[in-house]
């Protein structure tokens, strides 16, 4: 299973994903610039990604907690999600996401 992740500098990376992993974990494991400071507890918003059209609609709706956190970021867009809340499955094979500026390790925005 693959996911395609565009980093903050615009470079696209094809990452090997695993069924049941969180998208955040895959991005972090491959060493891209993601802060993910709470480690997947849905309590920080530093794994913020934009999910490409077509894939965004496939995702289950965000929880109220996730929405609250997304609203706390400076760079929220209509297709924003926290990547720790996107569990990978065969259905998401080939999903394209872009890392938000506020997910960067040195981001002031987060």
């Amino acid at each position: 299973m693959k996911i395609l992740v565009t980093d903050q500098s615009g470079v696209e990376h094809e990452l090997e994903g695993l069924d049941g992993w969180r998208t955040m974990e895959v991005i972090r494991d491959w060493g891209l610039n993601i802060k993910a400071e709470c480690g997947g507890a849905c309590s920080c918003a530093t794994c913020h990604v934009y999910v490409e059209d077509g894939w965004f609609e496939k995702l289950p709706d965000p929880s109220d907690d996730e929405e609250d956190l997304l609203y706390s970021t400076l760079d929220k867009k209509p297709n924003s999600r926290l990547s720790c809340q996107i569990l990978l499955s065969e259905e998401l094979d080939g999903m394209r996401v872009t890392l938000a500026p506020s997910a960067a390790k040195d981001s002031e925005a987060a």
Partner: peptide, 11 residues
């Protein structure tokens, strides 16, 4: 740990 906790600046 990850450094010091600081309040988040709202958007």
């Amino acid at each position: 740990g990850g450094g010091s906790f600081q309040p988040k600046r709202p958007p």
